[in-house]
Amino acid sequence: MGYVNRRNRTIAGVFLLPTVAVLFLTTIYPMLYALYLSFRNYDLAKPFIPRIFVGLANFQEVLTSGPFMHSMWITFKLMAVTLTFQFVIGVGLALLVTQRLPGMAAIRTLLLIPMMISPVIVGLVWLFIYFPELGYLNYFIGLIGINPIPWITSTQWALTAIAIADIWQWTPFVMMGTAAALQSLSPEPYEAALIDGNSRIDVFLYVTLPQLKPVLISLLFLRAIDAFKIYDIIFVLTKGGPGDATETIALYIYRQSFTFWRMGVGAAASFVSLIIISVLITLFFKSMQKSAVAR
């Protein structure tokens, strides 16, 4: 028995080796290197600055920095808005596209397109839409007599504009996940409710939603991680501006690392946000387990 086990373990090890190697090279090593950097004064553009060990100075700087806290606030604000709309609209669309109506399959496919586009391209598409002078959006609102709105160039609108683009791109993800879950739900409770005469709202609130809860939590969890990292769309549309109105965590880290070339500070900021996102994950998993037990 012991021999077989040992042998199986060896074989398992051999099969795992490529995965472990790739994981090490692409994830673990860069992460360890980033950890190493986070304790150093490392300016990529200025090799004449000694790249010395600075203890927790980088972390201290990040945690006491107004811009970092500001970017954290912007990130969570954006996350709250985009996730709310993505889930409300996404679940609504999922309910719609799972109806057995003619043409729904085609509509469903069309609705998935935004999700399949690279975020940079999405950014560019919305750049054309938002463009102040020549943009489509201002053209169309001009037709109904509204003055042009500086969508991405005013502090009042920029975050909203980014939220709209992000909602446009990721609502289909929520829709797809929810639609899949809806289709896997047993139809019989619905027929029971139909016979009992429960209203559509009641059926949605008390029958559908509770059954979707585990899936919605998983989707929320995936979306939250993604929303926390939001970068591409903002980079294309506003680069964090105007002022610092749309500067999220990822842009803050980018700016520290690749504008100021302070790799150490950038790495420290990355780890701080990693810790924040890990706490989020843990909370999500806890609540997921709770809802699983409750079933």
Partner: peptide, 9 residues
């Protein structure tokens, strides 16, 4: 119903 169609939650 055959599968009882109870509301699981």
């Amino acid at each position: 119903f055959q599968n009882y169609a109870l509301y699981p939650h």
